[in-house]
């Protein structure tokens, strides 16, 4: 079983054209489609689902084209919508049955999922009485209640509530571990970094970064040093040739030209009697990689 997207292209507007987007998921997991607003993420998701036709390219799941309404596919659209006057369980069962599940299985699956998210007591509650976070969770569940193999999620973490984001992210990871293929479109690069093994980052319809996240970051090497100490060492670090990336309340992050530079600073600090409370050499964040990449594109 695999998802294959091959050279999908479509002119979206006078300024944006999705150009030859290709990727493949050969095993279950979470694939991220990341980009700013207007980069073409939603249209890409819709083309994968066969809701809008591409101008070029093909999509196949399990070596067959995807048909809207297929029970093996789940979809969470960017524009959320629920029936306000229906209760939670009825709504989930409805969407499950629309996808071909029989009623008994749909009820069982809906109840299981509600229990997983701690929402069993909301089964009979009308959607209009739920708060925003609860509605986000219910909407999420409508895309997976029929136990699809392929799940496409457009902005699943729109809610700003960190607790809900964590719950949904954990659920996604569980689903991936159960053997589901999940494709997630999001503006949140940090979120993608937290849960996607593989990804593609779009900028104005073009893929600017693509591949395995670990490999992408390794390719940049260790370029960042996160440092915290009882005294402010910013000036000292700059004197040693480091570039300040960000000064945070409890720590600072610097760009280094290799591990040796960081080591030299550490030796100097120790010799001066300063002991850092945090000293971490790491790869650049995906956000930094993205910004440095499109920085070149916008010039």
């Amino acid at each position: 079983m695999s998802l294959k997207v091959d050279k999908l292209s479509k002119r979206l507007s006078s300024k944006v054209k999705l150009e030859k987007i290709s990727f493949e998921m050969t095993k279950p997991g979470i694939f991220g489609i990341i980009g700013e607003s207007g980069s073409g993420k939603t249209d890409l998701i819709r083309m994968i689902l066969n809701l809008i036709p591409p101008e070029e390219g093909t999509v196949s799941f399990n070596e067959a084209p995807i048909i809207p309404g297929d029970i093996s596919v789940g979809y969470l659209p960017e524009k959320r919508g629920l029936y306000m006057k229906s209760d939670v369980l009825e709504q989930l069962v409805y969407f499950a049955m629309l996808r071909g599940m029989n009623k008994r299985a749909a009820v069982k699956s809906a109840r299981n999922l509600l229990a997983r998210l701690g929402m069993s007591d909301l089964e009979q509650v009308l959607v209009e009485r739920l708060d925003k976070d609860e509605r986000e969770k219910v909407q999420f569940l409508t895309s997976i209640v029929h136990e699809p193999k392929l799940i496409l999620l457009d902005e699943p973490f729109r809610t700003a509530n960190p607790r809900v984001i964590t719950e949904l992210m954990d659920l996604m990871k569980e689903l991936a571990a159960e053997g589901r293929y999940i494709v997630m479109a999001s503006k949140e690069i940090e979120v993608a970094e937290a849960c996607c093994e593989n990804l593609v980052i779009l900028y104005k319809g073009k893929p600017v970064i693509a591949g395995n996240l670990k490999e992408i970051k390794h390719a940049y090497g260790h370029t960042n040093l996160v440092l915290a100490a009882d005294v402010d060492v910013t000036d000292t670090a700059i004197d040693f040739g480091m570039e300040l990336i960000e000064k945070r309340p409890l720590e600072s992050e610097f760009r280094i030209q290799g591990d040796e530079m960081a080591q030299t600073l550490l030796e100097h600090m120790v010799s001066q009697g300063f002991h850092p409370t945090k000293y971490e050499i790491r790869e650049p964040s995906l956000q930094e990689i993205y910004l440095s990449t499109i920085g070149g594109q916008t010039k």
């Binding site: 809701l51 659209p77 524009k79 919508g81 306000m84």
Partner: peptide
């Protein structure tokens, strides 16, 4: 209410 996209993706 934007339910339409979920519906047409299903039926």
């Amino acid at each position: 209410s934007n339910i339409m996209e979920s519906l047409v993706a299903s039926a």
